[in-house]
Design a protein around this nucleic acid. Sequence first.
DNA 1: ATTAGGG
DNA 2: CCCTAAT
Length: 625
Amino acid sequence: MVVKKRLDYGFNGYKVPPVHVPNSAKGKRSARKKKVDDRMCAIDLLAAVARKLLLEGEGSFGPSKTTGGPDPCNLKVKQEQDNAESQLRNEAFDLGSCTGSTLGSNNVSQREVSNVAKLLSTTLTPSPIITKSDTSSRNVCTEKPSLAVEKSDNFNYGTVVYKNDSDSCSLHNNMGLDAKPLAVVNSSSTVNTPLCGDGIICGRSFPKCRKGKLAVGRDDDENLSGCIQPNFTNNKALKPQGLGERRVRKQLATKFWKVAPTMTKDRELPKTDVETKPNFYRRKICYARQWTQRSVFKRRKFFQRCSILTSVGGSNNKVNRVSSSFNCRMPSYEPEDFHVKLSIKSFKVPELFIEIPETSTVASLKRTVMEAVTAILGGGLHIGVVVQGKKVRDDSKTLLQSGISHGEKLDDLGFTLEPNANRSLTTITNPEELHILPSCDLTKPLARLPAMVSAPDVVKLDVCTESPRTPIMNCQESNHDSVRSPADTFSLDKTGADARALIAISSMSVETLPTSPARKPRQSELCQRRIRRPFSVTEVEALVQAVEKLGTGRWRDVKIRAFDNAKHRTYVDLKDKWKTLVHTASIAPQQRRGEPVPQELLDRVLTAHAYWSQQQAKFQVKSPA
DNA sequence: ATTAGGG
DNA sequence: CCCTAAT
């Protein structure tokens, strides 16, 4: 019996580079500013900016090179707290530069799991692909992504010029900012960002540029959000779905997803949250089908109400502050422009829990984390604004009206990351099934967060890592409930072959907020696009083998035979994969992309394809006739 | 629910 | 991967 060794990392979240949230096109219009500001400083503008930031860049992940803890901020704050911890920290895992080695060889072993869980930190690294217009920013961008690591109240400012390329507008770009006529971004300017090598958003697709000052926030109290590993029950795959439901999705899908780039102005709508964010839903509105196909839709609860509250503002260390994933501060203001200046130090993405064999390579770890985060960020996340403990629901209100003004203390201003709302509370996970990781403090923060009831949900992603030496056929599904199937026809040695990622985030139910209006669970289901999960060579091999035996056209059987344990692979996926394999096999090797598939396999693909095509032809001739 | 095929 | 149409 093979005992799998896994590493459990409890991530507290990911630091997203700081963002400056200008709420007016300063300079352009100072006259009539009051009015104008009122218009453009609507609450959702903040959300838009924040969200844009989160969705924009295709960051990559890298284990932190220099810092220890899961959350640099936390470390800072608790620096004096634990000697042993700091000692370990000093032994820092220098993982960043050795993606070729395995985790095991990087001192991250089971034995140290507990410590590692605390000390291994993950950073959001801006994609190295930087705008061509700014070479100098490259260094700045890629060095130290998280401003949070620093604890300076004052530091230099540098200027980063974002690519001024409207062509590069992606869906994302159109998501938030464009919605407002008086968008935050103003072409022909640049953004001033901290020079100290801290995270800078170098979205290559930033449509426009802006110049502005960045106010630096101070480290605030830190709250660990709960790190949970709830049991996830997802049994039989292929759970059907109501036709109507599906239809609704279809409609929504076409309506929002496809038209996404042009949909920009339906933000100012109704009052309820739900209704006011069509934009934010665009991305997730569709794809439910496949999710449901494998009953993954159950997991969608994961996206429901998970939000992380963050706090803004000064040195208020009140204990009951909401989780402060980032800090903002109100710098002194100029009397003439009543602008609220915020510097969001960083956003914390809902907590993730990753489980991965120590034999995995760092590269696969990164990939796993990337997928996990992508699933969340790409999932139609939106930003919520909380002022004095109350969620601001009316996006059309001005900041002033909402109590966010230059004069007010912003101690109680917070932002929430809300991965897609709207599933009923019925999805709350049974507390009994929760496993609270040692490294996380679930109860505390939650207890202090009246606004959130934690309904921790989990999503697990299985990632079959390419294991050079142990080719396996079946990719194990990572659901807790998924029983390790006793070997089916194929494979069994999964040792080190499957990397599984379990993502857990605390789901906060805003509905439970005393001050917040009841939210309808009635929220129709909004779907989430499945994350892309390239087939590994191992999987391809399994597929080829199955198809060789069963032929094309029997995808369900293929699925059962070779991918029964890989819940994330549907027969449709397999069929599609076969399709692409056939295509891949017929093109020049130079044209192929992605992880190279051994020629041998491709040959088999062609052979099998030819064979079964022929068989099919025969039948065609026979039966109809 | 599956299959097949276009996008 | 997604979406549909047809089984």
